[in-house]
Design a protein around this nucleic acid. Sequence first.
DNA 1: GCATGATCATTT
DNA 2: AAATGATCATGC
Length: 204
Amino acid sequence: MAGQTLGQLALRLGITTPRTLQRAKGWTGELIERQLGAYAGSTPQPDFPDLKIELKTLPIGINSVPTESTFVSVVPLADNIGITWQTSAVRAKLARVLWIPVQADRQLAVADRIIGTPLLWSPSAREDAVFETDFNELMEMVAFGRMQDLSAHYGTWLQVRPKAANAKALTPGFDANGQRVMTLPLGFYLRRAFTRQLLERHYA
DNA sequence: GCATGATCATTT
DNA sequence: AAATGATCATGC
C-alpha cells in the first residue's frame, strides 16, 4: 500500500471516499483493516489475534509529525481490581503495533492522502517502564475515585482523555468513598510527543 | 452502552 | 500552534 493514495485503495476495494473525515473519523483505519484482512472486528483483541499485532494508522502532517494523539484502549473504571500494568489491556495492545503513517493535512483531500511506509514496532524495556509508571499513576487516581481530577495533563507518554459519544455519556465507576457512581468513560491515549519521536527514530 | 475505528473543535 | 476535552460512525 505504501505510496498509494487512500482514493486509489478505496477505489480498488469498492469503497466510497468521503469528502471529509468530519463524519467518518475512523474511515482511514477501517479502510486499511479491510485491505489487510484484519478479522478481530469489534472484539477487545488485537486486530490480528493470532499474530498479536495491533494495527494503527498514524495521521501525519506536512512536516511528517503526527497530527493527533493515538487512542489505545478504554480505561477500566469498574471491575479493575487486581489489574496491573502487566495484565492490562493497554499493555497488550502496545506490545506489538503495526503503524501505518498516512498523510492527514486537513488541506489535502482525503482521496489524495498518501499511505506511508509501515513500521512494525514493539516497545523497548525503557519505553515499557515509562508506560508502566504512567499507567500506575493514572490508575491510582481511578482507584481513589478521582476520575474528575484525572485530566489529560497527567502522564509522560500515556494520557487519559474522554472516550465517549459525548460529554453526557456515562459508565459505571466508583467515587472517592467507594460508592458506585456513573461517570464519563475515559480512554488511554499515546501523546503525540511519543509517536513523534517514534517516527523520528525509525525514519530519520 | 461498549468496543471498534479515530478526528474535530475549543481552549491554552 | 499545540494540547485538551468533546465528538462522530458502526455493529451489536
